[in-house]
Design a protein around this nucleic acid. Sequence first.
DNA 1: CGTGGAATTGACACCCGTCAATGACTGTGG
DNA 2: CCACAGTCATTGACGGGTGTCAATTCCACG
Lengths: 245, 245
Amino acid sequence: MSRNQDLPLKSFLSACTTAECQDCDARPHSVCAGVPEHGIADLEANVTHMSVEPRGAILMEGDPAHHMFNVTSGTVRVYKLLPDGRRQVIGFLMTGDFLGFAVRDAYAYSAEAVTEVSLCRFSRPRMEALLQKFPGMEKRLLGLAANELAIAQDLMLLLGRKTARERLASFFLMMVERLTRLGRTGNPLPLPMSRSDIADYLGLTTETVSRAFTQFRNDGLIALEGTDTVRLTDLAGLQEIADGN
Amino acid sequence: MSRNQDLPLKSFLSACTTAECQDCDARPHSVCAGVPEHGIADLEANVTHMSVEPRGAILMEGDPAHHMFNVTSGTVRVYKLLPDGRRQVIGFLMTGDFLGFAVRDAYAYSAEAVTEVSLCRFSRPRMEALLQKFPGMEKRLLGLAANELAIAQDLMLLLGRKTARERLASFFLMMVERLTRLGRTGNPLPLPMSRSDIADYLGLTTETVSRAFTQFRNDGLIALEGTDTVRLTDLAGLQEIADGN
DNA sequence: CGTGGAATTGACACCCGTCAATGACTGTGG
DNA sequence: CCACAGTCATTGACGGGTGTCAATTCCACG
C-alpha cells in the first residue's frame, strides 16, 4: 500500500489570467452552465483563474474551506488519509468537475494535480452570492452533487464487493464513459495517473493492479501503448467482468 | 456473503394521514427545514405520508424515479446489487434523511425498511415546484447532498483501506454520532439492522463481523445487551481503533 | 416447550498484501 | 552520444487476513 508521508505537498498555485469564462470549453460541463449568457461578465468578475503543476497541492484535508474550485482542464486526484499513511483516492476530477463541497468549515479531503491543471477558484462568500443571483447555478450545483453521489455509490459497490479484476475492468469502463461524455476519445484510454493512484482508488496495491493489467493483456482484453495508454480491445468482455461475470 | 435473491421484495407501502408537517419531529433535520413557517400548509398539500413494514421495499434500482422521500422515523437500508447477488449496503437512513436523488430518470439503488418506517413521499414534479417556490428548501437539499457525499467518502476510506476491526469500530462511532445529532441516545447503541446488513455495509461477511464483535467484547471495548444493543464501554479505545491505531 | 432463523464459533482455503528483486523509462550530466 | 541515477512498473515467493463451508448455539415467537 502506498504511503503518502513523504510527498512534497507544498502548493504550486499561481495566478494566471489567460483563460476567460466567455470562451471556456469547460463551461457547458461545469456549474457555470447554470449562469445565463448575460451573467458571464459577473461570473468572470468573481473568479480567479489559476493553474497547478503536476504533484502540486490544491487543497488539504483540515484546511478551512475558504474556496471552491472548478476544474477546467487536466486531472486532479482527491483523497483521504489515515494517520498511518494509508491512502484512499476518492475521485479523479476532470474538465467541468466541481471541487470544494464542505460540511462544517473544513475540507474533509485533500486534492492534488495529477497533470498540469487549470482551475477557476471562487471564494466561498462570492460563490454564495453568485448562487443567490443565479438560481440556475444552484440547480446545476445540486445536479453535480447528485452525480458525484452516484459515482461515489458505484465506487462503494466496487470497494466493498468486487474482486481485483472486476475493479480494474470497472475502472476502465468508468473512465471511458466520462471521457466520452466530455466529447473526448476514451479508446485508446489515456491514464495520466500512476499505478499507485489507481491502486489507491480501487482499494488495492500497485502490485495487484499491475498483475491485473498483465492478466487482461494476456487474455486479449487490453493492449498497452506505453504505460499510460490502454487500448481496450474487448469492451464487451471487460463489461462482463466489471459486472461480476 | 449474503445473497439477496430470495428476499420478499413486494411493497408494503400503505397510505396514512396521521402525521402532519406542522408538528413533524423530523422537520428540523430534514429538507423541510428549508420551508418557511408560512409555507407549511403548501408543503403539506404536496406530500403523502406513508409507512412501510419491516423488510418492505420502498424503491428498487432501475425503477423510474417518480418519487422522492423523506424519512421521518425508523431505519432504511439503501443498497446496490451485483448480478450474482453480491450486495453492498451504501447507507442506513434515519429521521430527516432524504431518499431519491437520481441522475437520469431511474434510481441507481434499492431501499427497504429495516424497522417500521414512516416516510413523506413527494412526486418529482411537485418537489421541483416546491424547490422553485422555496429557495431555502433547495439550499437545504444541497446541504443534505453535501453531507451525504461526506459520509460516502468516509465509507470509501473505510471500504478501501480499513481492516475488519477498524471498520466495525468506525461503524459504531458513526452511528453514535448520527443518533447524537438527532438528539437521541447513542450509548447504549441500538442496532436495528441484522449482522448481515452490517456486514454488507462494511464490505465484510457476517462471520467476520461476528468475530469482530466477540473480539471487542473480549477486549472490554463493548458489552452486548441482547443481540441488537451494544454498550460502548471504551469510546476512546474504539476511536483509536477506528482511526487506524 | 418446540421451532426456525439469526448469530456465533471452528476448520480450512484462497485472494490479495507484503517483501524483495528485476526491468523499463526518463532526464541529466559528463 | 552514452553512462548513470532515480522513479515507476512488473514479476516472483510467501504469508496472513478474511471468505467459505459447516456445525452449534442463541433467541424470538408461536
